[in-house]
């Protein structure tokens, strides 16, 4: 990737610390998640490769820009999304987001995978980027805090 646009949560914030340490990836802090999607798309349209690092709450904000920019203009866009509120998340107030995350991804027809920390996570990221490139569309890798250990 050449650029990663992000709104952090606890988990994504840790991931972005690693991104900032990279000399190859421009980290862009944004105010709202739809911006992150458009910024990543702009980098890709200009010859780079943009990624979006956000929480699932923010992904739920992004239906319009996914349909009206990413899908409509067929732009590769790779997401790493923290999956708050699934069964492994100890924080109770994330639960409603967790309940609707995969259902929403399905309704929006977004291809996605759950990161599997028992396997090679770098390979899963590489595969997601590749699938976004091949489909010229979005691809979402859902992660949990444990995946960052």
């Amino acid at each position: 990737m050449t650029l990663a646009a992000s709104v952090p949560d606890t988990w994504i914030g840790r991931l972005m610390q690693a991104v900032r340490a990279s000399a190859k990836i421009r980290a862009v802090d944004v105010a709202r998640e739809e911006e992150a999607v458009a910024i990543a798309c702009g980098a890709s349209l200009a010859g780079g490769r943009g990624a979006v690092l956000i929480q699932n709450a923010g992904l739920l904000n992004c239906g319009g820009v996914l349909a009206g920019l990413v899908e409509l203009y067929r732009i590769p866009c790779f997401f790493i999304v923290s999956y708050r509120g699934d069964g492994r998340d100890p924080i109770y107030y994330h639960t409603p987001k967790g309940r609707v995350t995969e259902a929403t991804l399905g309704a929006w027809r977004l291809p996605y995978a759950l990161a599997d920390r028992a396997e090679d996570l770098a390979a899963q990221v590489a595969r997601g980027v590749e699938l976004a490139d091949e489909s010229r569309g979005p691809y979402v890798l859902l992660i949990t805090g444990g995946d960052l250990e």
């Binding site: 650029l3 911006e35 458009a38 910024i39 702009g42 349209l45 200009a46 319009g64 009206g68 409509l72």
Partner: peptide
């Protein structure tokens, strides 16, 4: 590149291009 949907996307799209 001209958008036909996605209100509010022009400036962040341009920002991504400018940074790239």
């Amino acid at each position: 590149i001209a958008l036909c949907d996605s209100m509010g996307a022009a400036i962040p799209l341009a920002l991504g291009m400018a940074l790239q």
